[in-house]
């Protein structure tokens, strides 16, 4: 059994689909933070079989959790203070995401102007469809 110590203050991202934790690590920019981050892969889960968990130490006001909603809105976000869970955040599909996914349409203006941000809007919540702000091309997950 692998033991990772508890958090005094920070965020625990639980119920991450097994194998997705590194995607989230980079999308959230955790590689650029100086605080301690623990990635637990393939943890046993009664609900999911296997899951990934990320524990992030410290007050993380600047962390953009919207991207998590896009990657997997079933992830549980636990806010820890004084060794206790003080808040559980539920995630929703974000209405707008910037520089998380990239437009693949070769006719899109982003294909020739590299400095443009890649902005996508949620066009259909039921099918989780996002469309490029510029060319309206659908992005398939």
């Amino acid at each position: 059994m692998l033991n990772i110590s508890g958090l005094k203050e920070g965020i625990v991202l639980d119920h991450i689909q097994a194998g997705k934790s590194l995607d989230i690590y980079y999308h959230l920019g955790l590689d650029k933070l100086e605080c301690q981050v623990a990635i637990i892969k393939n943890a046993k889960s009664s609900k999911m079989g296997r899951k990934d968990i990320i524990k992030i130490e410290g007050a993380l006001d600047n962390l953009d959790l919207k991207v998590l909603g896009y990657i997997d809105h079933n992830i549980t976000v636990n806010i820890i203070k004084d060794d206790k869970i003080v808040e559980k955040k539920t995630l929703k599909l974000p209405k707008k995401i910037t520089n998380v996914i990239h437009c693949k349409n070769p006719r899109c203006i982003t294909s020739i102007e590299q400095e443009l941000p890649h902005v996508f809007f949620l066009s259909d919540e039921a099918t989780e469809t996002y469309r490029c702000m510029y060319c309206e091309e659908k992005y398939g997950k």
């Binding site: 349409n105 006719r107 899109c108 203006i109 510029y134 060319c135 309206e136 091309e137």
Partner: peptide, 10 residues
């Protein structure tokens, strides 16, 4: 008029 889609939006 632009050959790339979304150029007028930019």
């Amino acid at each position: 008029r632009h050959p790339k889609e979304g150029a007028p939006l930019v």
